[in-house]
Design a protein around this nucleic acid. Structure first.
Lengths: 195, 195
DNA sequence: TGCATTATTGAATCGCAGTTCAAAAATAAA
DNA sequence: TTTATTTTTGAACTGCGATTCAATAATGCA
Protein backbone atom coordinates (compact mmCIF):
# COMPACT_ATOMS: atom_id res chain seq x y z
CA UNK A 1 0.00 0.00 0.00
CA UNK A 2 0.95 3.57 -0.49
CA UNK A 3 -0.73 6.73 0.76
CA UNK A 4 -1.07 9.94 -1.20
CA UNK A 5 1.65 12.40 -0.25
CA UNK A 6 0.67 15.67 1.39
CA UNK A 7 -2.51 17.23 0.03
CA UNK A 8 -2.01 17.39 -3.70
CA UNK A 9 -5.71 17.81 -4.41
CA UNK A 10 -5.71 21.09 -2.52
CA UNK A 11 -2.34 22.19 -3.87
CA UNK A 12 -3.77 21.83 -7.35
CA UNK A 13 -6.85 23.84 -6.44
CA UNK A 14 -4.78 26.69 -5.01
CA UNK A 15 -2.49 26.70 -8.01
CA UNK A 16 -5.47 26.67 -10.35
CA UNK A 17 -6.97 29.75 -8.70
CA UNK A 18 -3.75 31.64 -9.31
CA UNK A 19 -3.34 30.49 -12.89
CA UNK A 20 -7.00 31.06 -13.76
CA UNK A 21 -6.79 34.56 -12.30
CA UNK A 22 -3.58 35.30 -14.17
CA UNK A 23 -4.49 33.99 -17.62
CA UNK A 24 -8.24 33.45 -17.52
CA UNK A 25 -9.75 30.00 -17.51
CA UNK A 26 -9.61 29.42 -21.23
CA UNK A 27 -6.02 30.49 -21.65
CA UNK A 28 -4.83 28.69 -18.56
CA UNK A 29 -2.64 25.68 -19.34
CA UNK A 30 -2.95 22.51 -17.32
CA UNK A 31 0.80 22.03 -17.33
CA UNK A 32 1.20 25.46 -15.76
CA UNK A 33 -1.17 24.58 -12.94
CA UNK A 34 0.75 21.34 -12.44
CA UNK A 35 4.04 23.21 -12.37
CA UNK A 36 2.81 25.71 -9.78
CA UNK A 37 1.29 22.95 -7.67
CA UNK A 38 4.53 20.99 -7.86
CA UNK A 39 3.01 17.91 -9.45
CA UNK A 40 3.16 16.25 -12.83
CA UNK A 41 0.63 17.04 -15.51
CA UNK A 42 -0.89 13.60 -15.25
CA UNK A 43 -1.45 13.91 -11.52
CA UNK A 44 -4.05 16.57 -12.10
CA UNK A 45 -6.25 13.93 -13.71
CA UNK A 46 -5.89 11.66 -10.73
CA UNK A 47 -7.48 14.30 -8.55
CA UNK A 48 -9.88 15.92 -11.01
CA UNK A 49 -11.79 14.48 -13.92
CA UNK A 50 -10.90 17.40 -16.17
CA UNK A 51 -10.18 21.10 -16.32
CA UNK A 52 -13.78 22.11 -15.85
CA UNK A 53 -14.10 20.04 -12.70
CA UNK A 54 -11.32 22.07 -11.13
CA UNK A 55 -13.24 25.26 -11.77
CA UNK A 56 -16.42 23.74 -10.38
CA UNK A 57 -14.58 22.68 -7.25
CA UNK A 58 -13.23 26.20 -6.73
CA UNK A 59 -16.73 27.63 -6.72
CA UNK A 60 -18.08 24.83 -4.59
CA UNK A 61 -15.56 25.61 -1.88
CA UNK A 62 -16.07 29.37 -2.18
CA UNK A 63 -19.85 29.39 -1.90
CA UNK A 64 -20.08 26.71 0.71
CA UNK A 65 -17.86 28.78 2.98
CA UNK A 66 -19.65 32.05 2.25
CA UNK A 67 -23.06 30.51 2.71
CA UNK A 68 -22.16 29.02 6.07
CA UNK A 69 -20.75 32.26 7.33
CA UNK A 70 -23.74 34.24 6.14
CA UNK A 71 -26.08 31.71 7.72
CA UNK A 72 -24.32 32.26 11.05
CA UNK A 73 -24.86 36.00 10.73
CA UNK A 74 -28.42 35.65 9.56
CA UNK A 75 -29.60 33.55 12.46
CA UNK A 76 -28.23 35.88 15.11
CA UNK A 77 -30.86 37.61 17.24
CA UNK A 78 -28.59 40.10 18.97
CA UNK A 79 -28.14 42.30 15.89
CA UNK A 80 -30.70 43.99 13.65
CA UNK A 81 -31.16 43.79 9.89
CA UNK A 82 -28.98 46.82 9.24
CA UNK A 83 -26.09 45.25 11.09
CA UNK A 84 -26.67 41.99 9.27
CA UNK A 85 -26.46 43.85 6.00
CA UNK A 86 -23.14 45.30 7.13
CA UNK A 87 -22.03 41.80 7.99
CA UNK A 88 -22.91 40.58 4.53
CA UNK A 89 -20.79 43.25 2.90
CA UNK A 90 -17.91 42.59 5.29
CA UNK A 91 -18.11 38.89 4.58
CA UNK A 92 -17.51 39.37 0.89
CA UNK A 93 -14.78 41.91 1.40
CA UNK A 94 -12.97 39.75 3.92
CA UNK A 95 -13.10 36.70 1.70
CA UNK A 96 -11.59 38.47 -1.24
CA UNK A 97 -9.01 40.41 0.75
CA UNK A 98 -7.65 37.05 1.84
CA UNK A 99 -7.53 35.88 -1.74
CA UNK A 100 -7.64 38.52 -4.47
CA UNK A 101 -7.00 35.91 -7.14
CA UNK A 102 -10.21 34.22 -6.10
CA UNK A 103 -12.06 37.49 -6.61
CA UNK A 104 -10.77 37.69 -10.16
CA UNK A 105 -11.74 34.11 -10.93
CA UNK A 106 -15.16 34.68 -9.44
CA UNK A 107 -15.91 37.73 -11.56
CA UNK A 108 -14.46 36.40 -14.77
CA UNK A 109 -15.46 32.77 -14.80
CA UNK A 110 -18.62 32.24 -12.79
CA UNK A 111 -20.99 33.31 -15.54
CA UNK A 112 -19.30 31.02 -18.00
CA UNK A 113 -19.54 28.02 -15.74
CA UNK A 114 -23.18 28.59 -14.88
CA UNK A 115 -24.04 28.93 -18.53
CA UNK A 116 -22.00 25.87 -19.50
CA UNK A 117 -23.51 23.51 -16.96
CA UNK A 118 -26.16 25.04 -14.69
CA UNK A 119 -26.94 21.73 -12.97
CA UNK A 120 -23.30 21.17 -12.10
CA UNK A 121 -22.93 24.53 -10.38
CA UNK A 122 -22.82 24.46 -6.60
CA UNK A 123 -26.25 25.02 -5.02
CA UNK A 124 -24.60 26.99 -2.23
CA UNK A 125 -24.47 29.99 -4.53
CA UNK A 126 -28.24 30.18 -4.85
CA UNK A 127 -28.63 29.57 -1.15
CA UNK A 128 -26.28 32.45 -0.42
CA UNK A 129 -28.17 34.76 -2.74
CA UNK A 130 -31.50 33.78 -1.22
CA UNK A 131 -30.22 34.39 2.26
CA UNK A 132 -28.94 37.83 1.30
CA UNK A 133 -32.38 38.63 0.02
CA UNK A 134 -33.90 37.44 3.29
CA UNK A 135 -31.82 39.93 5.21
CA UNK A 136 -33.14 42.80 3.13
CA UNK A 137 -36.70 41.52 3.44
CA UNK A 138 -36.24 41.33 7.21
CA UNK A 139 -35.09 44.93 7.16
CA UNK A 140 -38.23 45.98 5.31
CA UNK A 141 -40.52 43.97 7.56
CA UNK A 142 -39.00 45.50 10.66
CA UNK A 143 -39.49 48.93 9.16
CA UNK A 144 -35.78 49.71 8.89
CA UNK A 145 -35.58 49.57 5.10
CA UNK A 146 -37.83 51.32 2.62
CA UNK A 147 -40.58 49.19 1.09
CA UNK A 148 -40.45 51.20 -2.13
CA UNK A 149 -37.97 48.90 -3.79
CA UNK A 150 -38.14 45.52 -5.45
CA UNK A 151 -35.92 43.38 -3.26
CA UNK A 152 -34.82 40.99 -6.00
CA UNK A 153 -33.79 43.81 -8.27
CA UNK A 154 -31.91 45.76 -5.64
CA UNK A 155 -30.26 42.59 -4.37
CA UNK A 156 -28.90 41.97 -7.86
CA UNK A 157 -27.87 45.56 -8.24
CA UNK A 158 -25.90 45.56 -5.01
CA UNK A 159 -24.36 42.21 -5.76
CA UNK A 160 -23.25 43.30 -9.22
CA UNK A 161 -21.83 46.53 -7.87
CA UNK A 162 -19.81 44.71 -5.23
CA UNK A 163 -18.59 42.22 -7.77
CA UNK A 164 -17.35 44.91 -10.09
CA UNK A 165 -15.62 46.83 -7.32
CA UNK A 166 -13.90 43.79 -5.91
CA UNK A 167 -12.73 42.88 -9.35
CA UNK A 168 -11.28 46.31 -9.98
CA UNK A 169 -9.57 46.23 -6.65
CA UNK A 170 -8.16 42.76 -7.23
CA UNK A 171 -6.75 43.80 -10.59
CA UNK A 172 -4.88 46.74 -9.12
CA UNK A 173 -5.00 46.70 -5.31
CA UNK A 174 -2.72 49.70 -5.02
CA UNK A 175 -5.13 52.05 -6.77
CA UNK A 176 -7.94 51.95 -4.22
CA UNK A 177 -7.97 51.36 -0.50
CA UNK A 178 -10.27 48.48 0.18
CA UNK A 179 -11.45 50.05 3.39
CA UNK A 180 -12.51 53.16 1.60
CA UNK A 181 -14.35 51.03 -0.96
CA UNK A 182 -16.07 49.16 1.81
CA UNK A 183 -17.20 52.29 3.64
CA UNK A 184 -18.43 53.96 0.49
CA UNK A 185 -20.45 50.92 -0.47
CA UNK A 186 -22.05 50.69 2.94
CA UNK A 187 -22.82 54.40 3.04
CA UNK A 188 -24.24 54.57 -0.44
CA UNK A 189 -26.26 51.36 -0.18
CA UNK A 190 -27.74 52.10 3.19
CA UNK A 191 -28.87 55.52 2.07
CA UNK A 192 -30.65 53.69 -0.73
CA UNK A 193 -32.14 51.08 1.56
CA UNK A 194 -32.95 52.88 4.80
CA UNK A 195 -36.34 54.38 5.48
CA UNK B 1 -13.71 44.30 -61.53
CA UNK B 2 -16.12 43.05 -59.00
CA UNK B 3 -17.75 44.80 -56.09
CA UNK B 4 -18.38 43.23 -52.66
CA UNK B 5 -21.96 42.05 -52.39
CA UNK B 6 -24.21 43.62 -49.76
CA UNK B 7 -22.54 44.37 -46.45
CA UNK B 8 -20.94 41.11 -45.45
CA UNK B 9 -18.65 42.77 -42.91
CA UNK B 10 -21.65 43.92 -40.93
CA UNK B 11 -23.57 40.69 -41.43
CA UNK B 12 -20.66 38.87 -39.85
CA UNK B 13 -20.57 41.25 -36.90
CA UNK B 14 -24.27 40.83 -36.22
CA UNK B 15 -24.02 37.08 -36.48
CA UNK B 16 -21.00 37.05 -34.20
CA UNK B 17 -22.88 38.94 -31.48
CA UNK B 18 -25.59 36.31 -31.52
CA UNK B 19 -23.21 33.37 -31.54
CA UNK B 20 -20.93 34.85 -28.87
CA UNK B 21 -23.96 35.52 -26.67
CA UNK B 22 -25.31 32.03 -27.22
CA UNK B 23 -22.13 30.00 -26.69
CA UNK B 24 -19.66 32.39 -25.15
CA UNK B 25 -16.67 33.69 -27.08
CA UNK B 26 -14.41 30.73 -26.45
CA UNK B 27 -16.94 28.10 -27.39
CA UNK B 28 -18.22 30.02 -30.39
CA UNK B 29 -17.28 28.37 -33.67
CA UNK B 30 -16.25 30.46 -36.63
CA UNK B 31 -18.15 28.23 -39.01
CA UNK B 32 -21.33 28.87 -37.03
CA UNK B 33 -20.88 32.61 -37.33
CA UNK B 34 -20.30 32.16 -41.04
CA UNK B 35 -23.40 30.03 -41.38
CA UNK B 36 -25.59 32.55 -39.54
CA UNK B 37 -24.14 35.42 -41.55
CA UNK B 38 -24.76 33.50 -44.76
CA UNK B 39 -21.14 33.50 -45.91
CA UNK B 40 -18.40 30.91 -46.25
CA UNK B 41 -15.99 30.25 -43.42
CA UNK B 42 -13.13 31.73 -45.41
CA UNK B 43 -14.97 34.97 -46.03
CA UNK B 44 -14.77 35.84 -42.36
CA UNK B 45 -11.00 36.18 -42.77
CA UNK B 46 -11.43 38.53 -45.67
CA UNK B 47 -13.25 40.96 -43.43
CA UNK B 48 -11.52 40.33 -40.10
CA UNK B 49 -7.96 39.34 -39.33
CA UNK B 50 -9.06 36.73 -36.81
CA UNK B 51 -11.68 35.80 -34.23
CA UNK B 52 -10.41 38.27 -31.66
CA UNK B 53 -10.65 41.14 -34.09
CA UNK B 54 -14.36 40.47 -34.47
CA UNK B 55 -14.84 40.83 -30.73
CA UNK B 56 -12.77 44.01 -30.67
CA UNK B 57 -14.89 45.46 -33.46
CA UNK B 58 -18.10 44.68 -31.56
CA UNK B 59 -16.92 46.69 -28.57
CA UNK B 60 -15.56 49.46 -30.73
CA UNK B 61 -18.96 49.98 -32.29
CA UNK B 62 -20.78 49.67 -28.96
CA UNK B 63 -18.72 52.18 -27.01
CA UNK B 64 -18.34 54.65 -29.82
CA UNK B 65 -22.13 54.88 -30.05
CA UNK B 66 -22.66 55.05 -26.31
CA UNK B 67 -19.96 57.65 -25.86
CA UNK B 68 -21.39 59.89 -28.55
CA UNK B 69 -24.87 59.70 -27.13
CA UNK B 70 -23.68 60.38 -23.61
CA UNK B 71 -21.61 63.30 -24.85
CA UNK B 72 -24.74 64.79 -26.37
CA UNK B 73 -26.54 64.49 -23.04
CA UNK B 74 -23.58 65.76 -21.05
CA UNK B 75 -23.17 68.99 -22.97
CA UNK B 76 -26.82 70.00 -22.69
CA UNK B 77 -27.44 73.08 -20.56
CA UNK B 78 -31.21 72.81 -20.36
CA UNK B 79 -31.15 69.89 -17.91
CA UNK B 80 -29.48 69.50 -14.52
CA UNK B 81 -27.07 66.84 -13.27
CA UNK B 82 -29.84 64.69 -11.85
CA UNK B 83 -31.58 64.55 -15.19
CA UNK B 84 -28.30 63.82 -16.87
CA UNK B 85 -27.80 60.93 -14.52
CA UNK B 86 -31.24 59.64 -15.50
CA UNK B 87 -30.23 60.02 -19.11
CA UNK B 88 -27.13 57.94 -18.55
CA UNK B 89 -29.13 55.10 -17.06
CA UNK B 90 -31.69 55.29 -19.85
CA UNK B 91 -28.96 55.24 -22.45
CA UNK B 92 -27.62 51.92 -21.24
CA UNK B 93 -31.05 50.40 -20.85
CA UNK B 94 -32.15 51.51 -24.29
CA UNK B 95 -29.04 50.17 -25.94
CA UNK B 96 -29.43 46.74 -24.45
CA UNK B 97 -33.20 46.55 -24.91
CA UNK B 98 -32.55 46.93 -28.59
CA UNK B 99 -29.98 44.15 -28.49
CA UNK B 100 -30.05 41.79 -25.51
CA UNK B 101 -27.42 39.55 -27.09
CA UNK B 102 -25.07 42.51 -27.03
CA UNK B 103 -25.69 42.91 -23.32
CA UNK B 104 -24.68 39.31 -22.75
CA UNK B 105 -21.53 39.66 -24.80
CA UNK B 106 -20.65 42.86 -22.99
CA UNK B 107 -20.93 41.33 -19.55
CA UNK B 108 -19.27 38.05 -20.37
CA UNK B 109 -16.45 39.01 -22.69
CA UNK B 110 -15.33 42.58 -22.05
CA UNK B 111 -13.13 41.73 -19.09
CA UNK B 112 -11.43 39.00 -21.03
CA UNK B 113 -10.68 41.23 -23.97
CA UNK B 114 -9.33 44.08 -21.85
CA UNK B 115 -7.07 41.69 -19.99
CA UNK B 116 -5.90 40.01 -23.18
CA UNK B 117 -4.95 43.17 -25.03
CA UNK B 118 -5.52 46.41 -23.12
CA UNK B 119 -3.98 48.57 -25.85
CA UNK B 120 -6.24 47.09 -28.48
CA UNK B 121 -9.42 47.89 -26.57
CA UNK B 122 -11.46 50.78 -27.85
CA UNK B 123 -10.62 54.07 -26.08
CA UNK B 124 -14.28 55.07 -26.27
CA UNK B 125 -14.95 52.86 -23.28
CA UNK B 126 -12.68 54.87 -21.02
CA UNK B 127 -14.06 58.09 -22.45
CA UNK B 128 -17.56 56.93 -21.65
CA UNK B 129 -16.62 56.02 -18.09
CA UNK B 130 -14.88 59.35 -17.57
CA UNK B 131 -17.87 61.24 -18.84
CA UNK B 132 -20.19 59.35 -16.52
CA UNK B 133 -17.96 60.35 -13.66
CA UNK B 134 -18.09 63.96 -14.80
CA UNK B 135 -21.84 63.98 -14.53
CA UNK B 136 -21.69 62.84 -10.93
CA UNK B 137 -18.99 65.39 -10.14
CA UNK B 138 -21.15 68.10 -11.68
CA UNK B 139 -23.99 66.99 -9.43
CA UNK B 140 -21.79 67.33 -6.37
CA UNK B 141 -20.42 70.69 -7.44
CA UNK B 142 -23.90 72.07 -8.00
CA UNK B 143 -24.91 70.82 -4.57
CA UNK B 144 -27.40 68.29 -5.85
CA UNK B 145 -25.41 65.20 -4.89
CA UNK B 146 -23.83 64.43 -1.54
CA UNK B 147 -20.09 65.13 -1.30
CA UNK B 148 -19.67 62.29 1.21
CA UNK B 149 -18.87 59.71 -1.42
CA UNK B 150 -15.83 58.84 -3.47
CA UNK B 151 -17.00 59.44 -7.00
CA UNK B 152 -14.75 56.86 -8.62
CA UNK B 153 -15.87 54.16 -6.26
CA UNK B 154 -19.55 54.89 -6.54
CA UNK B 155 -19.27 55.20 -10.28
CA UNK B 156 -17.84 51.69 -10.43
CA UNK B 157 -20.44 50.42 -8.03
CA UNK B 158 -23.31 51.75 -10.08
CA UNK B 159 -21.77 50.57 -13.31
CA UNK B 160 -21.25 47.05 -11.96
CA UNK B 161 -24.77 46.93 -10.60
CA UNK B 162 -26.24 47.96 -13.93
CA UNK B 163 -24.10 45.47 -15.73
CA UNK B 164 -25.24 42.63 -13.58
CA UNK B 165 -28.91 43.54 -13.84
CA UNK B 166 -28.80 43.93 -17.59
CA UNK B 167 -27.11 40.60 -17.85
CA UNK B 168 -29.71 38.87 -15.74
CA UNK B 169 -32.44 40.46 -17.73
CA UNK B 170 -30.86 39.49 -21.03
CA UNK B 171 -30.54 35.90 -19.91
CA UNK B 172 -34.22 35.62 -19.06
CA UNK B 173 -36.15 38.69 -20.20
CA UNK B 174 -39.50 37.22 -19.15
CA UNK B 175 -38.55 37.09 -15.46
CA UNK B 176 -38.18 40.81 -14.84
CA UNK B 177 -39.79 43.81 -16.45
CA UNK B 178 -37.04 46.04 -17.70
CA UNK B 179 -39.02 49.14 -16.85
CA UNK B 180 -39.32 48.06 -13.28
CA UNK B 181 -35.58 47.37 -13.18
CA UNK B 182 -34.91 50.81 -14.58
CA UNK B 183 -37.11 52.60 -12.09
CA UNK B 184 -35.73 50.69 -9.14
CA UNK B 185 -32.18 51.48 -10.18
CA UNK B 186 -32.92 55.15 -10.55
CA UNK B 187 -34.78 55.33 -7.26
CA UNK B 188 -32.18 53.44 -5.26
CA UNK B 189 -29.19 55.17 -6.81
CA UNK B 190 -30.56 58.66 -6.47
CA UNK B 191 -31.36 58.12 -2.83
CA UNK B 192 -27.72 57.19 -2.46
CA UNK B 193 -26.47 60.15 -4.44
CA UNK B 194 -28.82 63.02 -3.59
CA UNK B 195 -28.08 65.43 -0.82
C1' DT C 1 14.26 -7.95 2.29
C1' DG C 2 10.83 -8.88 -1.14
C1' DC C 3 6.13 -8.49 -2.65
C1' DA C 4 1.78 -6.29 -3.57
C1' DT C 5 -0.56 -2.27 -4.12
C1' DT C 6 -1.21 2.35 -5.05
C1' DA C 7 0.59 6.99 -6.37
C1' DT C 8 3.04 9.54 -9.58
C1' DT C 9 4.96 10.65 -13.82
C1' DG C 10 5.40 12.98 -18.45
C1' DA C 11 5.93 11.77 -23.18
C1' DA C 12 2.76 10.48 -26.73
C1' DT C 13 -1.81 10.85 -28.47
C1' DC C 14 -5.61 12.82 -30.59
C1' DG C 15 -9.31 15.75 -31.62
C1' DC C 16 -10.67 20.05 -32.43
C1' DA C 17 -11.33 24.41 -34.49
C1' DG C 18 -8.91 28.65 -36.18
C1' DT C 19 -6.70 29.77 -40.16
C1' DT C 20 -4.95 29.34 -44.95
C1' DC C 21 -5.02 29.28 -49.88
C1' DA C 22 -5.70 27.54 -54.48
C1' DA C 23 -9.55 27.16 -57.20
C1' DA C 24 -14.05 28.89 -58.75
C1' DA C 25 -17.39 32.38 -59.42
C1' DA C 26 -18.94 36.89 -60.18
C1' DT C 27 -18.57 41.31 -62.07
C1' DA C 28 -16.89 45.35 -64.89
C1' DA C 29 -14.59 47.00 -68.68
C1' DA C 30 -12.93 46.38 -73.37
C1' DT D 1 -17.76 37.74 -75.67
C1' DT D 2 -13.54 37.83 -73.83
C1' DT D 3 -10.43 39.27 -70.46
C1' DA D 4 -8.78 41.15 -66.18
C1' DT D 5 -9.59 41.78 -61.62
C1' DT D 6 -11.62 41.00 -57.31
C1' DT D 7 -14.63 38.39 -54.28
C1' DT D 8 -16.03 34.20 -52.47
C1' DT D 9 -15.51 29.60 -51.31
C1' DG D 10 -14.70 25.45 -48.25
C1' DA D 11 -11.70 21.58 -48.02
C1' DA D 12 -7.31 20.86 -46.18
C1' DC D 13 -3.83 22.15 -43.03
C1' DT D 14 -1.78 22.92 -38.68
C1' DG D 15 -0.75 23.82 -34.12
C1' DC D 16 -2.08 23.65 -29.75
C1' DG D 17 -3.14 21.78 -25.47
C1' DA D 18 -6.31 18.66 -22.84
C1' DT D 19 -6.23 14.07 -21.84
C1' DT D 20 -4.38 9.30 -21.67
C1' DC D 21 -1.71 5.45 -20.16
C1' DA D 22 2.21 2.43 -19.83
C1' DA D 23 6.13 2.75 -17.14
C1' DT D 24 8.20 3.93 -12.75
C1' DA D 25 8.53 5.05 -7.98
C1' DA D 26 7.11 4.93 -3.39
C1' DT D 27 5.06 2.86 0.49
C1' DG D 28 3.08 -0.65 3.75
C1' DC D 29 3.04 -5.26 5.10
C1' DA D 30 4.52 -10.06 5.65
Amino acid sequence: MRLKEGNKGNDILLAAIKVFAESGYHNAKIHKIAELAGVATGSIYVYYKNKETILQRIFEQLWERLYNELAAISRRTDINAIEKFDGLIDLLFDMFIKDPALAVVFVNEQNYLIQKDPKGFTPYYQKFIDLGECIVVEGIDKNAFTPDIDVKIIRSYIFGGLRHLLHQWAQSPEEYSLDSIRENVKYFSKRGLLK
